[in-house]
Design a protein around this nucleic acid. Sequence first.
RNA 1: GGCCCUAUCGUCUAACGGUUAGGACAUCAGCUUCUCAAGCUGGUAAUCCGGGUUCGAUUCCCGGUGGGGUCACCA
Length: 428
Amino acid sequence: MKNNVVITRFAPSPTGWLHVGGARTALFNYLFTRGQQGKFILRIEDTDRERSKKEYEESILSGLSWLGLEPDETYRQSERTAIYTEYIKKMLAADRAYQAEDGVIRFRNPNRVVNFVDQLRGEINIDSTDLGDFVIARNDHEPLYNLAVVIDDHEMKITHVIRGDDGIANTPRQILLQEAMGASRPIYVHLPLILAPDRTKLSKRHGAVAITDYEREGYLPAAMINFLALLGWHPADDREVLTREELLTAFRLDRVQKGAAVFDRDKLNWLNHQFLKKYPAIEMAELIEKHLTDEVRALSQYNTARLLRAVPTLVERLNKLSEITTWCQNGELNFYFTSPQYALKLLRNTAHLATIAKMLSALAGEQFTADNIKSTLWDYATQAGRAEVLWPMRVALTGREKSPDPFIVAAILGREETLQRLAYAQTL
RNA sequence: GGCCCUAUCGUCUAACGGUUAGGACAUCAGCUUCUCAAGCUGGUAAUCCGGGUUCGAUUCCCGGUGGGGUCACCA
């Protein structure tokens, strides 16, 4: 009989979308538990019928699923009233709780100092006297938060309660209730909170706070997980970019920070770029294609083969997928799919265009790679002056002041299109 | 305000009494270079303050200050 199996839970209330703080709490529970063959439970705390909404519950479920934090079991408190009623009646019968004059059920507070150990912070003492005979249920079938939590943690045999440190204030109430019903005490771990850059609580006015916002902006779940893990935790070595598997094996509760951490977009962007770079080209092309605007798809030479060839240069400066949309709106991507319009002045000079075209036309279609194009033109460009040769070539192909280098662009466009654009430039 | 938690570069963090206080993001400079981006190299930058304990404190203790949390028939 093994009695040392770890059981944890993530217990959000469906009164709002899953936000980054909740996601981080879920992640730490998940990493801690799955790193040691434990059981990770999702418990929807929807005892407040008024404020709980199905759409929020769905957002929590889909958010966790997107991050890959699948629970082993899922419960809904609204489906467990029979269990709560039983406990409430028992507490009433044992006179550990009583029906107050105002109609609700209150706990008989023993009014003493509650002492508990937090795995991260050590011993914590809180005098429960200030709490008074707090309300634990509206009636015998409608428990309030603290009661429902204690009953469920006990029924589900939760071994570790890992939650945000705003839960510290509730801990004495919950411990008192555990003792009143003879339940054992789980190990408490209160995680530091995630703060906005201005060091205040993360809220909507700080921009994206819901996990779905990040999904929509085009962050990869792997990057999000990595980033969230690094908010309040760090491996024993210097690694910063870690896969889910690496996180799972490296995660240790005793390396979790005590102080609050500020959410840093720059680092998230950098991390996402790291994962984007590692993404397989074909799948990356699919992801990028999803973010293209209809206007771009409608361009005359649009084709997925060309997009696929352009993926490396796009990914190079891509922090999040939504930037693709921005580039589309700026027209920055148009030259990949249609002949560019530009002024002769931008070209600077047309002197070498004919020579370039002639040299490139010697390359067969299948030889038209960036490396071959470069080696074909490099010596000539060096002799004639690279700026004199390469700048006009690049403008002829892209029509832009800023772009990837002309060898790569030429390879993406292909032999025929490249030669056409070079020919057109000579007519200006 | 009471109670509780907390405090290393701008940000995320390493250092479990002895280090030139390390890494990453951001930033700056240089390299590369036809432009942009990426990449590479280097730089600037921190132990909140005051007392202790100790031969020696980022590290342990106390106080202050700052920040956060919490004080519902919400969770």
